[in-house]
Each structure stands twice: as structure tokens, then as C-alpha cells.
Write a protein that binds this DNA or RNA. Structure first.
Lengths: 192, 192
DNA sequence: ACTCTAGCGGAGGTAACCCTCCGCTTCAAT
DNA sequence: ATTGAAGCGGAGGGTTACCTCCGCTAGAGT
């Protein structure tokens, strides 16, 4: 939906129907699916998704013949938006830009965890998503490393996993999550 | 199953039937459930669990009238074993003892995440588990803090969440998980 | 060895979900 | 305004899970 220079954005656009009503249904289905996946995880009911979207089950299956198609498209859509966010941070201070993006990244993790679980790393789309993601966020880490704000014995993949794991956890309150995330990022910041 | 001085251990023992065959089935069900929860998450099929345990579905329902009963017992059983592990580490170096226990803790997280998700913090048993867990593991952190090996502006709950989150994530390989966990623990170690 | 009761397995009714198929509707191009 | 094709909704058949109920089995106490 969100246009970016990253290949992943085309995946969603390619599927979107041209006719007006069809496009509206397509969007509604993606929204409903995102919500349902966040709520019920990988095995949310497809009929429930159609219901949420205010659309017949047949329409869901026409747009997304298999469960996997729906998962992939939702996932690609999320990643696409995340890539767009990285571009808007180019002018901030290196460390601040990095943590701001990681915040945004954290927001997408709930849905992503469900989808990842379902796709189980066996999808072609993953490669594309990974590449776009690294292309968008990787430079933020490298910039921070170059100015000595982040340790250099780790890569972008490590950082994503670190943040992903922590944000996927349930905390007593937001304050605790922020505190714990800060502790972990102290580990990233500290030179070695 | 494992006997410890912690209250949580009694929860499992109290349910366990006295007759020999019944006790065997009970154990088999707990094992099967632990496995199934780790594999399929919170909504694993109860019939599948009975099948794995080589037991009729009726037997499952007799031992655990509701899905929740089964969840709670599996969870309590795990926590009980974890508490026992803490006792065996009392004579090691503070920091080493702490990290060794956290390793063990990490091993239990897969199942625990599923159960926690299902119980959603609404169970009486949680309180007991939390208390036993803190009673067992808390001193390990305090000891490390006392000798200056761990930062003092965090509590045991923060630490558990930190480790829980990271270990619940999927990594490319074990090496990456260890690396990321080490980075996070650097954040714990560093005195602010 | 006998008995009697706790414990067993699984058939079967109910409900939810998956997915296909097809007659009706609505867009958009002429 | 017409029309045909793209799109729509949901009925319906198959599958699987939940949970109850009851006739049978086998452990434990005498």
C-alpha cells in the first residue's frame, strides 16, 4: 500500500485488484487479517477474517487462494511500511535514529511473529522482505557504529532479533518494557 | 513431580492419582501436553494430547476437567523443576550461577509462553508460581548485585522478562542466540 | 482368590472451520 | 443506456476438535 523504493512494496501492489469495489475489499481483508493475526496468532480463522472485513468467504478465497497467500501479503505490507519509516529518519542523530526506528519496528512485531510462525521460513517472499528490511534499517546501525555509538561485534540481524524478542514479551506495564529494552540497548551501546 | 521446598511443587503432587496405572497415565499426559504446547502453542488439540499419551480422551478429561486445569498443572510442574535447579547452584560464583540458571530458565520458556498466553494471567496458580520462582531465582541476582557483578537499577522481574523475550525468539542458529543473549547480559552486567 | 470400585477407552452429538461452487450483482467500457 | 465480464456472497459437504456418557477392565484391600 505504502509506496517505497523497496522491492517488497511491489508484492502487495501486484495482488491488488483494479476494480474499485474489489480493491476496497482487498484492503478491508488485509486490515482484518492483520488484526486477527495480532489477536489470535497464526491460526486465526479465515471465516472470522472475512466476517471482520464485512466480506463473503468466497471473496477472501478469490483474493487469497491459500492461507499462505494471505499471510505473505500481510507480512509484505507490514515490512513495506517499515521500510518507508526508515527513510524518514535519515536526518536524525545516528543513535537516536536507530532507536526511533527500533521503536517503530517493535510496533510491528506482534503481527509479524504470528506470520513468521505460520510461514516457518519456507516462503520465497521472506528473502525479499529480509533484503528490503536490511536495506532500509541496516544503514541506521552502520551509521551508529561508524560514530562509535554502537558496538561493532554484532550485525543488523542480531539487533533485530534482540529487539524482536523483548518487544514480543508481556510486561507488567509499559514502564517495565522500556526499562528492560533500555538495559538491552545498553549492551548494544557499550563498546564491547 | 520433582520435590522441592517450594509451594508450587505441591500443586502437581496434589493432583496425582494414587493408583499405579492412573499415576502412569497422569505422567504420560503431562509429558504429552508439555510437548504439544511447545509445538502447537496455546491451542494444541486435547485429543491429540491424549493420543500422544496413548490414553483415551476420557482419561484426559477425568484428570483435567478443563483445558485450564491441564495448562496450570503443566506450568506448575515446569516451575517446580526450575526452582529445584536454582538450589543446586548455590555454591557457584555469583555471576556464573546466575547465568547458568538463566540458561536453564531459557529452556523452559517455549512451553511457558504457550501456557502463559492461554492462562492470560488470570489464574490463582500464577501467584504461587511467581512467588516460588522469585524465591528460588531472586537470590541469585541479589548475590551478583552484592558483589558488583550486576547493575542494581533493575529487579529480578526485569531480568526474567529480558531473558524470556530473547529466548522465545527464533534465531538462525544457536550461535546467534548465544551472541544476542550475551549482548543483552552485557547490559545487565555493566554497572549502569 | 475374590470382590468392588476407581479408572479406562472411545462412540457419538455438537460446533467450528475449511474450501468449492454457482447464481446474482455491479463496475466500467463502449 | 447497454452489456458482458469481473466480482460478490454464502450455502453446503467434508473434516476435526470439544466434551459427555457408559459399559468394560484391572488394581488394591481383604
Amino acid at each position: 500500500m505504502t509506496a517505497t523504493p523497496f522491492p517488497v512494496s511491489e508484492i502487495v501492489a501486484a495482488r491488488r485488484p483494479h476494480r474499485k469495489d474489489a480493491a476496497r475489499n482487498y484492503d478491508a481483508l488485509l486490515d482484518a487479517a492483520r488484526e486477527a493475526f495480532a489477536e489470535h496468532g497464526a491460526d486465526a480463522s479465515l471465516e472470522d477474517i472475512a466476517r471482520r472485513a464485512g466480506v463473503g468467504i468466497g471473496t477472501l478465497y478469490r483474493n487469497f487462494p491459500t492461507r499462505r497467500d494471505l499471510f505473505e501479503t500481510v507480512y509484505a505490507d507490514e515490512v513495506s511500511a517499515l521500510c518507508a519509516a526508515a527513510l524518514e529518519l535519515a536526518d536524525r542523530e545516528p543513535w537516536e535514529a536507530l532507536t526511533a526506528w527500533l521503536d517503530r519496528f517493535a510496533g510491528y512485531m506482534v503481527t509479524k511473529r504470528a506470520v513468521r510462525e505460520a510461514l516457518n521460513g519456507e516462503s520465497d517472499i521472506f528473502q525479499t522482505c529480509r533484503e528490503s528490511m536490511y536495506a532500509a534499517g541496516g544503514p541506521l546501525l552502520e551509521r551508529a557504529q561508524r560514530v562509535g555509538a554502537a558496538r561493532t561485534d554484532m550485525d543488523f540481524g542480531d539487533l533485530l532479533r534482540l529487539v524482536a524478542g523483548i518487544t514480543a514479551t508481556n510486561f507488567e506495564d509499559d514502564a517495565q518494557r522500556d526499562r528492560v529494552l533500555a538495559i538491552a540497548l545498553d549492551g548494544v551501546r557499550a563498546g564491547r
